[in-house]
């Protein structure tokens, strides 16, 4: 067995571009999924009954589907639904956003619910109205519980971007596997792919640990 690791260096430009796309997808998805998640959570907590049910159904539906299936389904359905021919990147982004929004909605909902009723009552007893109570008492505490979970979701999302490779989005996994197919250097490229994900993901995982320690809630 001879290994030729230079193939990795030769294709470094493509790999870097792929990595950039991976990072872009992660950031863009979160940028959409955080506000949308908050919106869905609020609908689920404070909307009227049919809206609450719809929001709950959305969350339960997308949390109980494999993401790779959602990616495929989006690829075929979105062009028909929207009437536009969407590039794979947009489709992949849409699928990721739909998925992560559902998880975020659950995170925000649980975070807000976890603040004991007594806190809101104490705030109102001081004379605050509901909005002030939310803003100054509930949200700061809820954020402490939400942030670690959000950080964890971020790292999962970073890994899940690899799944949009199945619809030929040129992120890291797709690029690495294309190079493998063209160069026949299977072990080298696949190991390099794993290594690059590791280099990016490991510090993120450690950062999540730090966030969880820092924001640990003791009651």
């Amino acid at each position: 067995m001879t290994f030729d690791w230079s193939v990795v260096w030769q294709h470094r430009d493509a790999l870097i571009a792929g990595t950039a796309t991976t990072i872009l997808l992660t950031v863009a998805t979160m940028a959409i999924a955080v506000p949308c998640g908050i919106a869905v959570a609020i609908l689920r907590l404070y909307g009227w009954a049919p809206v609450r049910a719809l929001a709950a159904a959305y969350v339960e539906f997308f949390r109980n589907l494999p993401l790779i299936l959602v990616v495929f389904w989006a690829f075929y359905v979105l062009p028909i639904l929207t009437g536009l021919g969407l590039p794979p990147l947009a489709t992949g982004l849409a699928a990721l956003a739909l998925n992560v929004t559902a998880y975020n909605a659950e995170t925000f909902r649980a975070g807000i619910n976890s603040i004991r009723r007594g806190q809101v009552e104490a705030a109102m007893a001081l004379g605050m109205n509901r909005v002030q109570a939310l803003r100054r008492v509930v949200v700061p505490q809820a954020l402490r519980r939400i942030l670690p979970v959000l950080a964890s979701t971020w790292v999962s999302l970073f890994k899940d971007t690899s799944l949009v490779s199945v619809i030929a989005v040129t992120e890291l996994a797709y690029v690495a596997m294309q190079i493998r197919a063209q160069s026949f250097r299977v072990l080298e490229m696949l190991t390099a792919m794993a290594a690059i994900y590791w280099l990016l993901g490991y510090p993120q995982a450690k950062l999540v640990d730090w966030i969880q320690r820092r924001f640990a809630v003791t009651e």
Binding site: M1, V155, K159, D160, S162, L163, S165, A173, M177, R180, V186, L187, L190, T191, M193, A194, Y197, W198, L200, G201, Y202, Q204, A205, K206
Partner: peptide, 23 residues
């Protein structure tokens, strides 16, 4: 444990199927 938190399942599966037999 920490490495598995960094590497996507897709990558692990693909590596197991294509690269592991080579090794």
């Amino acid at each position: 444990i920490d490495s598995m938190r960094a590497i996507p399942v897709l990558v692990v599966l693909v590596w197991s199927f294509f690269a592991l037999p080579i090794l």
